[in-house]
Computed example of a mutant assay.
Amino acid sequence: MSRSARTHLLLGVVAALTLTACGGSTTSGPRVAAPPSAASNGEGIAGKDRMIVAWCERFGAPSPTSADGKVHRITVAALSPTDGSPIARRTVTLPERGSVDALCGEPRSTTEAADRALFNADFTLIAGTAPGPGGALSAMAFALTDGAPRGGTAATAGGDSAPAFQSGTSVLWYETGEQQVTSRDLGDPAAAPKQHGAAPGPDFVLSGDQPWLTRPLESKPDQVAISPDGAVAAGASSTVWRRTDPPAPYALWYVEPMALGRSGNGRASLPGSEQVPRCEPSRWTSDVTLLCNGGDNLLLLTFSADRGRLDTMTTLLPVATSRVVESVAVSPDGRSLAYLVDEDGETGLYRLDLTPGARPVEIAPVDLPPAGVVNPLTPRLIAWL
Score class of each variant (00 low, 15 high):
71 V>Y: 02
71 V>L: 06
73 R>D: 00
74 I>S: 01
74 I>D: 01
74 I>H: 01
76 V>S: 02
77 A>H: 08
77 A>W: 02
78 A>L: 00
80 S>V: 00
81 P>C: 03
85 S>W: 01
86 P>L: 01
88 A>T: 06
89 R>M: 07
89 R>E: 10
90 R>F: 00
92 V>I: 14
92 V>D: 03
92 V>E: 03
93 T>N: 03
93 T>E: 13
93 T>Q: 13
96 E>A: 07
96 E>Y: 10
97 R>Y: 12
99 S>T: 14
101 D>K: 04
102 A>F: 05
104 C>V: 10
104 C>T: 06
106 E>D: 10
107 P>L: 09
108 R>P: 00
109 S>D: 14
109 S>G: 14
110 T>G: 05
110 T>F: 03
111 T>N: 08
112 E>V: 14
114 A>C: 07
114 A>M: 07
115 D>E: 14
115 D>I: 08
116 R>L: 13
117 A>N: 09
119 F>G: 07
119 F>E: 09
120 N>Y: 11
120 N>R: 07
122 D>P: 02
126 I>S: 05
127 A>R: 06
128 G>E: 07
129 T>I: 13
131 P>I: 11
132 G>F: 14
133 P>G: 13
133 P>N: 11
133 P>H: 15
135 G>F: 15
138 S>C: 12
139 A>E: 09
139 A>N: 10
139 A>Q: 11
140 M>T: 12
140 M>L: 15
142 F>N: 05
142 F>I: 02
144 L>H: 06
145 T>D: 15
145 T>S: 15
145 T>W: 03
146 D>P: 09
147 G>Q: 08
148 A>K: 15
149 P>I: 02
151 G>H: 11
151 G>E: 12
152 G>T: 05
152 G>R: 13
153 T>F: 12
153 T>S: 14
155 A>K: 04
155 A>M: 09
155 A>H: 08
155 A>G: 06
156 T>M: 09
156 T>L: 14
158 G>W: 10
159 G>Q: 01
159 G>C: 06
159 G>A: 04
160 D>R: 04
162 A>C: 15
170 S>L: 01
172 L>I: 09
172 L>S: 08
174 Y>F: 13
174 Y>W: 11
175 E>Y: 00
176 T>S: 11
176 T>R: 08
177 G>R: 01
177 G>I: 05
182 T>N: 03
185 D>M: 04
186 L>C: 02
187 G>D: 00
187 G>I: 05
191 A>V: 07
191 A>C: 06
194 K>P: 00
195 Q>W: 01
195 Q>D: 15
196 H>A: 08
196 H>N: 06
